[in-house]
Amino acid sequence: MEAEMVKVSLILALAGLCVPVSPALAGSAQPSDTVRIVLKFVKHSPTDGPVARFDPASCPSCTAVTTPLFNAENARETVIALNVPRRRSLELAFQGPREAVRRVILEGGDLPFRDEAGRVVVQVPPVAADAVTAAEVATHIVEPGMVLRFEHADPARRAGFYATGPFPEVQRRAANVLEFAQREVVRELGLGEQVEREHLGRIQIMGFDTNAPHGHTDAPPHMHMHLRWPGNTGTQIGHYYIGAGGLLTHNQVGVKDIPGRERRFGRGEPFTTVGPNGRGVYTHRITGEGWLELGRAGDVPCLIRPADGAGFQSGATIRCAGHPETHIRVEDDRSRGVVTVATGAVTEIFRYDTDTGALISPAAVTPPGPSVYQDEPTSPTLTRGSAMSTNR
């Protein structure tokens, strides 16, 4: 582990992202007999006030988490954070009317619950590690070597930095477009296939949360595209900040689990993401206008510019050498749970669970029957099968 930390810090120091650090700084936490969980009680209908309050008598070894923003209360849900015994099958009771609760969610899934003597009793499975993401509302779109995390900015859930003041509707719409514009460049240049083929990790494209789930304030408004290294340590996380007009202002980069200085990249300054092999993978550059260049390291980049010349909130135009110009528009209908993405002449529809953001549209083709010849898959997300009956 120490040798790996030295290798990682040296790679990133050479890339100008941080200074070498002592491996002693990278210790791991000691095992604990408790874990932290977050339960989301989805309300049957929008209402003020909590629909559940933890009854400590149901679990004397459980304690409430008081860390700011781990608990939440809004018209859509009551979110409760607890420390519970590790790897124990529990039934936790909560004061509140059963009829007011429509769902109870832990991480990305539902938990069974029932009414018992006027309390909501929730069956909690054995939990081995902290499980705190239930309050997130984001849709994940997975492709070879890449995952796009699309956050749904719901004013009813606003919290943390965004709890008061003007809601960042323009910046969120701009982030929506920039996420899918980067996805299109990744696809056109084959970056996802490259990082998967070379075992460099996975590209993650993200925007920003406006409801501060599990204390993630995610502010000011920004978007990401970073390469998650295997094992995570060494991942360079850029924050491409979005101004009030929907244009990019600067990029602030830090390195996961490597103490050291963050670095700011202003307009006109390129930032190259480095892989765990020590080589550059792709380069971002915010232009003087607040547009975005993105390309394979060392190659001519693609240009992503606002469709109307003002801000990215209304759409984007992508120009890559050797590829036709492409226009991107994105709409998120939160009431119906539908994201519509127009990429040139192609319109994609992504349907999602409005309580969690989980993708409910089909995400993969069901493999054909076992008698059909299939090549060995090149990716865990791709399976190729012959559609020709003569090849059976």
Score class of each variant (00 low, 15 high):
residue 134 A to T: 11
residue 193 E to V: 08
residue 137 V to K: 14
residue 328 I to D: 04
residue 341 V to R: 07
residue 39 L to Y: 08
residue 73 E to R: 06
residue 216 H to C: 05
residue 193 E to T: 04
residue 366 T to H: 13
residue 255 V to E: 05
residue 324 P to M: 07
residue 7 K to A: 06
residue 326 T to R: 13
residue 290 G to S: 07
residue 285 R to Y: 07
residue 284 H to R: 13
residue 167 F to P: 12
residue 295 G to R: 02
residue 110 D to C: 10
residue 227 L to F: 01
residue 232 N to E: 12
residue 95 Q to I: 08
residue 227 L to P: 06
residue 117 A to Y: 12
residue 337 G to A: 03
residue 266 G to M: 07
residue 231 G to F: 04
residue 297 A to W: 06
residue 338 V to E: 12
residue 220 P to S: 01
residue 331 E to T: 14
residue 177 V to P: 02
residue 253 V to Q: 07
residue 98 R to A: 05
residue 261 R to W: 10
residue 144 P to V: 09
residue 371 S to P: 00
residue 86 R to S: 08
residue 56 P to M: 04
residue 241 Y to I: 00
residue 17 L to P: 01
residue 301 P to W: 09
residue 132 V to F: 15
residue 146 M to K: 14
residue 262 E to R: 12
residue 2 E to W: 14
residue 327 H to I: 13
residue 173 R to N: 04
residue 206 M to V: 02
residue 113 F to S: 00
residue 13 A to Q: 03
residue 189 L to C: 09
residue 196 E to R: 04
residue 166 P to M: 02
residue 51 V to W: 11
residue 22 S to R: 06
residue 93 A to M: 06
residue 180 F to S: 05
residue 261 R to D: 13
residue 125 P to E: 12
residue 390 T to R: 05
residue 203 I to N: 04
residue 323 H to L: 01
residue 16 G to N: 06
residue 274 V to R: 00
residue 153 A to H: 15
residue 345 A to F: 06
residue 266 G to Y: 03
residue 218 D to A: 09
residue 10 L to W: 05
residue 364 A to C: 14
residue 280 G to Q: 03
residue 149 R to N: 13
residue 179 E to G: 15
residue 191 L to F: 09
residue 28 S to Y: 11
residue 258 I to C: 02
residue 154 D to V: 15
residue 87 R to V: 05
residue 327 H to E: 13
residue 10 L to F: 06
residue 108 G to M: 10
residue 286 I to H: 12
residue 37 I to V: 14
residue 193 E to C: 00
residue 334 R to C: 04
residue 50 P to W: 10
residue 280 G to H: 03
residue 331 E to W: 07
residue 40 K to Q: 14
residue 329 R to K: 13
residue 313 Q to L: 12
residue 178 L to S: 12
residue 141 I to D: 12
residue 59 C to W: 02
residue 361 S to C: 06
residue 89 S to D: 15
residue 151 E to F: 14
residue 92 L to I: 07
residue 278 G to D: 00
residue 374 Q to A: 01
residue 248 L to P: 08
residue 339 V to R: 10
residue 273 T to S: 11
residue 259 P to M: 02
residue 316 A to K: 01
residue 294 L to C: 12
residue 237 I to G: 00
residue 144 P to R: 05
residue 41 F to C: 03
residue 330 V to G: 01
residue 143 E to A: 14
residue 219 A to R: 05
residue 172 R to L: 10
residue 347 T to P: 02
residue 97 P to F: 11
residue 97 P to N: 15
residue 357 G to D: 02
residue 64 A to T: 14
residue 216 H to Q: 10
residue 51 V to F: 07
residue 19 V to D: 15
residue 192 G to S: 02
residue 266 G to P: 10
residue 54 F to V: 00
residue 382 L to A: 04
residue 122 V to Y: 02
residue 228 R to L: 11
residue 357 G to C: 08
residue 347 T to W: 10
residue 105 I to A: 06
residue 193 E to I: 05
